[in-house]
């Protein structure tokens, strides 16, 4: 039972992160490969603040949310003026820099060995140290985020960022500020992934730079490719499937040192297969 609940908690956390990726990449067409870094900033913020007892869990989550929104903004401001392909390179640079910071700011982040013993989320005086208790929190956060995601997508702002993906020049001709909308969506997206990072730290109680490197960014992209771009369902299905994969591999009779590389190979094959046969993903719209 705990095994299944753990899987569910992880899937919910990645669903939050996928909504963030979907807003940025799927809807607005800002092809970011630094989502893993922002996810990590959320996780480290909550990890550091609660581990050192500098803040309670809810306050640390709020800090993660704000910090991730601001980081995404800071990244966005110079980079969003850069068109399409160049942004990929810029965000790749940010991802590399973030990993270097996580690795080398040893005093705060614990360096390569990571942060161990992050306390479980404490909400209303209760420690959510059991998956069953944690799942209640993560489900509530996910439900609220899903509602917001849905509201944003159907709002006039949602229409605007969809239009930006299609044709920025035509949006400019309409008298709209493309830059302002991109800044707005970067902040929103940062908040979603910040929440995900904070929950991740609280749930696993151990975080290290390897969880937020370029592979993590690619995993987050794979999730919306598989699940589907620009839909709520896609943001839930992708993470549900891809976080199940390691669990399935762990019960199969494979040597444990082969499970990791095999997982990466399967992720890669899935990306190729979806691009070839179903580019819109399982429950998405055309990318």
């Amino acid at each position: 039972m705990n095994f299944f609940l753990s899987y569910l908690a992880i899937a919910e956390i990645y669903a939050l992160a996928s909504m963030s990726t979907n807003l940025l990449v799927g809807v607005t067409g800002i092809f970011s490969v630094s989502q893993g870094a922002i996810f990590g900033i959320g996780a480290y913020t909550v990890g550091i603040l609660t581990l050192n007892d500098w803040a309670s869990f809810p306050v640390a989550m709020a800090a993660a949310l704000i910090l991730c929104a601001l980081t995404n903004l800071a990244v966005a401001l110079p980079a969003l003026r850069i068109a399409g392909d160049y942004f990929v390179v810029t965000s790749f640079g940010i991802q590399i820099a973030a990993t270097a910071v996580f690795m080398n700011l040893t005093d705060i982040t614990g360096g390569a060995s990571g942060l161990a013993g992050v306390p479980p989320p404490n909400v209303f005086g209760r420690d959510l140290d059991e998956p069953g208790a944690f799942i209640l929190l993560s489900s509530i956060v996910l439900a609220a985020a899903a509602l917001f995601f849905w509201l944003v997508l159907r709002s006039p702002f949602g229409r605007l960022i969809n239009a930006i993906r299609e044709d920025e020049l035509a949006v400019t001709a309409a008298g709209k500020s493309v830059l302002a909308a991109k800044v707005g969506v970067s902040a929103l997206s940062g908040m979603f992934v910040g929440l995900a990072g904070g929950l991740y730290a609280g749930f696993l109680s151990f975080i290290d730079p390897g969880s937020f490197d370029i592979d993590a960014s690619i995993l987050l992209l794979t999730m919306i490719v598989v699940g589907g771009a620009r839909t709520l369902a896609g943001s839930l299905i992708g993470p549900a499937l891809l976080t199940a994969l390691p669990q399935v591999l762990s019960v199969l009779p494979i040597p444990s040192d082969a499970a990791g590389p095999l997982r990466q190979i399967l992720y890669g094959l899935m990306l190729i297969a979806f691009m070839l046969f179903r580019p819109q993903g399982i429950a998405g719209r055309r990318l």
Binding site: F148, R154, S155, F157, G158, A181, V185
Partner: peptide
Amino acid sequence: TDENPFRPI
């Protein structure tokens, strides 16, 4: 104001 990103929330 109707295209403000935080307004739907």
